[in-house]
Design a protein around this nucleic acid. Structure first.
Lengths: 253, 253
DNA sequence: TGTAAACGGATTTTCGAAACTTTTATAAAT
DNA sequence: ATTTATAAAAGTTTCGAAAATCCGTTTACA
């Protein structure tokens, strides 16, 4: 505006938008993002298994696209922590371990409670409506079991995520929401295994959560979600075969 | 081991590595990652300015590489929150705003203190040595001023990051470290502007921090880093021209 | 028999051009 | 003068093939 002393970049500093947190790529509609979405879903549902090698030949056939496009999608998955790559030897699905699940769950407790508390304090009518609606849709589908077809599993996963997203939607911290979402997706992979092997059935924690949130009871809601997360970890540790703590070293070169 | 009831993926669940948190792409050495590293550095140092349109033609010339490679690198930057894209209309550098800086700084306070506290509690001799060494290197260079050549600015930025990374290196939570690192980079863009426009000079906070950490004084060290972050935000808000709170709406279609 | 070099197939990485979309410019019509 | 239509230009997205790299196997040599 007025004469500003010489700037590192002239004028452009005034062209500022409000939010900088990473884009939610799921909202894009180009072909590249289609592939990305599909691959992400396949990893989260363990259709593509942990540690599995991702060869371009197979992927090209599976997703019907070119190498370049695949590469871009894989590149995205790497920065989300769902895949890994080593220069010259391609990509593979990110590994899983109990240690990892414990680590990410601890951080999740903080981010979920932080975003939920803020969301409740700034909730609107539209926010409440979306919670009611997304809970209704989630509740209509029974939690999937091992032998359900993949399409059912995917649909439940989608509704489950939508419900949890709706709870925190009015949180005003884009960065917190972004990291929360990333960790939520990570947890889905473990959640998945847990549900499939679960011996014990859990009561409807989503209903309790919904009511606590709609009642604007911050402490209760945060307590519920914290317990929800911690319980899942413990259940996974005790009921998922093969998921133990000391599984670090394997195949050394 | 023993017969496990039919698994969602057979056998592979046992092939588990310890860590799943996203890879630090900076460690790769392929050509793609070279370009990514350079572009990231250019954005962080505001050589590529906020909101600037990133046209493939120019970039190809600047970094001497092909469209496909660029696309992959840009894709990465988008998921790191350093660039944005809209299907069909290319990429641009992520915008900045005071609101964003405030938001990410709040989260940074939590992640920096969390990782630092854990790192101090599990520090080793090698950890202390690296802190001493990286501080020495940082201290040798005076903080850059506006008219310093870009190479000097870059070198200082590199040493600054190395010092802060060294402090938290022994933290055992890969996910916390990962998010901390991402936010640290984000903050660098604002830190940059602040340093350049700074009217007031600040005392050597890095030295205090180093000593508190080496003395294994968790509370003091965390307090220092918290103040360090908060002070920078306030300084930016008051001394960087054009960086005000209500700058959201601009150019509407 | 053991080690190292060399070969061949499989796979990844890089590239530039073709296809497509958005933007800009120009002209006609209201 | 403003809008609508049309055409050219600029820029982005997608693709498949060429170049480079990796990995397992064979061959050569001590």
């Amino acid at each position: 505006m007025g004469k500003v002393l010489a700037m590192p970049f002239e004028g452009s500093i005034e062209n500022l938008a409000a939010t900088t947190a990473p884009q939610d790529v799921s909202l894009e509609d180009a072909a590249t993002f289609d592939v990305l979405r599909k691959m992400r879903e396949d990893i989260l549902c363990c259709v593509l298994k942990p540690d599995q090698k991702l060869r371009f030949g197979e992927l090209r056939q599976r997703y019907g696209t070119s190498v370049g496009t695949l590469r871009e999608a894989l590149s995205h998955l790497v920065s989300e922590g769902l895949a890994r790559t080593e220069a010259g030897r391609g990509f593979q699905v990110a590994p899983i371990s109990l240690a990892d699940f414990l680590d990410l769950s601890e951080l999740r407790v903080y981010l979920e409670t932080r975003t939920l508390a803020d969301a409740i304090r700034h909730g609107t009518d539209a926010w409440e409506a979306e919670i009611v609606s997304s809970y209704f849709l989630l509740n209509k589908l029974a939690p999937p079991r091992q032998d359900d077809p993949v399409s059912v599993k995917r649909e439940w996963g989608k509704r489950h995520k939508r419900f949890h997203d709706s709870l925190v939607a009015t949180c005003r911290s884009p960065w917190s929401l972004h990291f929360r979402s990333e960790l939520f997706d990570q947890a889905r992979r473990y959640h998945w295994l847990t549900m499939i092997h679960a011996r014990s059935r859990r009561r409807n924690e989503h209903l309790d959560l919904r009511d606590a949130v709609l009642a604007r009871n911050v402490d209760l809601a945060c307590g519920l979600i914290e317990k929800h997360i911690r319980t899942t970890v413990q259940q996974a540790a005790s009921e998922v075969p093969g998921l133990t703590l000391d599984m670090a070293k394997r195949k050394k070169a």
